[in-house]
């Protein structure tokens, strides 16, 4: 490694330790290389975000607690009517996830750097699309970590006892919902983190947008918890998948315009 000449040619990369192909390498222009670079950078961004989340894991704990508090508040809102609580379990869970997501998503760009979060990103050679997918995946994982606590708490509070085999399906649906919230959430969080009143704008923009996810998730979770007499779970799951597909593509496409210099 040359230490005296900053402008010297790049050091040779070894397969074991290098990330993406060296940027000035002509071979890097091919499409496969482009996708390889994107994938690598997405994973680098994801790893960095997960590392930063781990470092401030007290925040995750706080968000989980917040979720538990909302579940509690729903039961107060409904009253001691056990039947009403049971029937509303799916809805309460999805709402708790939604409300918790605003906390998580808002932080996702604030945790970047001390000042002017997105600007620092503009100076790094990250493909904006890789940045989007890395962050959106990170947000999805963060929100998924809420499931192991919030689902059992809701089941206990609302007196619901699903079969053990249902837990996997519950978690899978939670994952799909979290993903459906994360894609548009990451896009809007990138924009609103640079404005004042992010705490108002982000939910205002996001909540109407994710109505399909919320409806689909509530229906699907409800079918798992209370029985699926007519075999509709498949259709709702497909709807959730479709929404995810559309939004993960669309938001990825427009994201570069959202973070470029103005």
């Amino acid at each position: 490694m040359s230490t005296l000449h900053p402008g010297a040619a790049p050091a040779t990369t070894t397969a074991a330790t290098s990330g993406a192909p060296a940027p000035d390498d002509p071979a890097a222009r091919s499409t496969t290389s482009f996708f390889a670079t994107m994938l690598t950078q997405t994973l680098i961004v994801l790893r960095k975000d997960l590392l930063l989340e781990w470092r401030s894991r007290s925040r995750l704990v706080s968000v989980v607690l917040f979720g538990v508090v909302t579940l509690l508040l729903f039961s107060f809102a409904v009253g001691p009517d056990v039947r009403a609580l049971r029937e509303g379990t799916a809805g309460f869970l999805v709402l708790a996830l939604l409300l918790s997501s605003t906390l998580g998503l808002a932080e996702s760009f604030r945790l970047e750097q001390e000042q002017d979060a997105v600007e620092g990103l503009l100076l790094l050679p990250i493909e904006p699309v890789a940045l989007f997918y890395g962050k959106a995946l990170g947000n999805t994982i963060f929100l998924s970590l809420l499931a192991p606590i919030l689902i059992p708490v809701a089941l206990v509070l609302y007196s619901v006892e699903p079969a053990w085999s249902d837990f996997l399906r519950l978690f899978g649906l939670w994952l799909l919902t979290a993903a459906g919230l994360s894609a548009p959430g990451t896009l809007y969080s990138a924009m609103t983190s640079q404005l004042r009143s992010q705490d108002v704008l982000l939910p205002l923009l996001l909540f109407p947008l994710v109505v399909p996810v919320l409806l689909g998730a509530v229906k699907a979770l409800d079918l798992v918890l209370t029985g699926d007499a007519m075999g509709q779970l498949g259709s709702w799951t497909i709807m959730l998948l479709a929404f995810n597909l559309i939004y993960w593509s669309l938001c990825g496409i427009v994201f570069p315009r959202a973070i470029e210099a103005s």
């Binding site: 990330g19 993406a20 950078q41 990250i126």
Partner: peptide
């Protein structure tokens, strides 16, 4: 290490 990886350089 993150910078090195993003730049495609050896990061050990």
């Amino acid at each position: 290490r993150i910078w090195a990886r993003l730049l495609g350089l050896p990061a050990s």
